[in-house]
Design a protein around this nucleic acid. Structure first.
Lengths: 193, 193
DNA sequence: ACCTGAACACCGTTCAAGT
DNA sequence: ACCTGAACACCGTTCAAGT
């Protein structure tokens, strides 16, 4: 029976905050937010639930704060094309991120971890400023764009993976197209000064 | 000891679904969603928690579905002014509703009760059609507008009743103004054809 | 320092029983 | 028909104890 010396006596990787977050996100993505319990999370990490408190003293609150930061923090990268193109790229990527982790969405629309979106909003405002949009208009556009993406994804999540259509005659919505058209609508309203 | 004959022997109004919803919303508004438990709801109604299941057989799931419908269903009324004015009136009222019941917001961005927003979206689309906006553009604008309002309120809720500012030098946001400007931005992008 | 085991106060829900 | 009481399987968290 050979043991790896870098691993502990139970032959498993050491518990770290990153592994805890990663595992929690895996549970939320796979089974939904309601199934994320400290005990189940402990099971997934092959550890007693109480061991998690040694890394996250504030317990589940702190765990959820981390999930919000992990999913919500995504600053817009500086782009080669124009600022409009850059914001479109960011918006599509952010939407994809939210859809990938739709179970975290309810946590994003709470007061939990108020600073989690600050960097994201700041990067959008900076992007607009560099594109020549005045300070006040940039602040408005940044909140409008981020709000639009979050709210639109919320509407998408409500509709999809719902088998029952409200009005049976209505055709299914192509949400990729719908989002793209809405994004163009919002960016049309941004005044470059 | 005089008893009112219309009331039962325990001298209290009879339990109805409406009273249950109303009381649940009162708890969520006053203490937050996390404090809404079947036992506390029973206490507020001066009844055992198990009595609620007689009116809501699907239990807490059904209760939350009702809260989503109660808060999220708000069709746009036909207006005397132009369609733009009508949509602005609706958006401001819908925002106020969401802010009044911010504790329900996390439930709104879930798959729970998928039909809850159908009438609201339908009324917005109808409003735009009557204003001369073509079918496809009206569908896009309806989702964009509703998404914007929901997402913007989410950003407001994250910021307000948070005492700690992310960057201490930054001035506080006037959210009424910010929302109004964002609303104008979105409506600018709506093409009347 | 890091993890465990037992315990506590809660929670949603079931089920048989009361009226 | 409408509500209750006891019970069950869970939950987050504390705390003393192990290594």
């Amino acid at each position: 029976m050979v043991r790896q010396p870098s691993i502990n006596a139970q032959n498993r990787p050491p518990l770290t905050t990153d592994r805890i977050i990663e595992s929690a996100l895996h549970i939320v993505d796979g089974q939904g937010l309601a199934r994320l319990t400290m005990r189940r999370l402990g099971d997934a990490l092959e550890v007693e639930a109480m061991a998690i408190y040694h890394h996250l003293p504030r317990g589940k609150e702190q765990l959820l704060d981390h999930l919000v930061a992990h999913v919500g923090a995504m600053p817009a990268a500086s782009s080669d094309g124009g600022w409009r193109e850059g914001l479109m790229v960011w918006a599509r990527a952010y939407r994809a991120r939210l859809l990938d982790h739709a179970g975290v969405l309810p946590l994003l629309v709470t007061h939990r971890n108020p600073a989690a979106l600050a960097a994201t909003i700041g990067s959008l405002r900076e992007h607009l400023r560099l594109g020549g949009v005045p300070e006040q208009a940039a602040a408005v556009a940044a909140h409008s764009l981020l709000g639009f993406v979050i709210g639109h994804v919320a509407l998408e999540v409500r509709d999809t993976r719902g088998d029952v259509r409200a009005e049976p005659g209505e055709p299914p919505v192509d949400w990729d197209d719908r989002f793209g058209a809405g994004l163009a609508l919002v960016l049309t309203g941004v005044n470059p000064g």
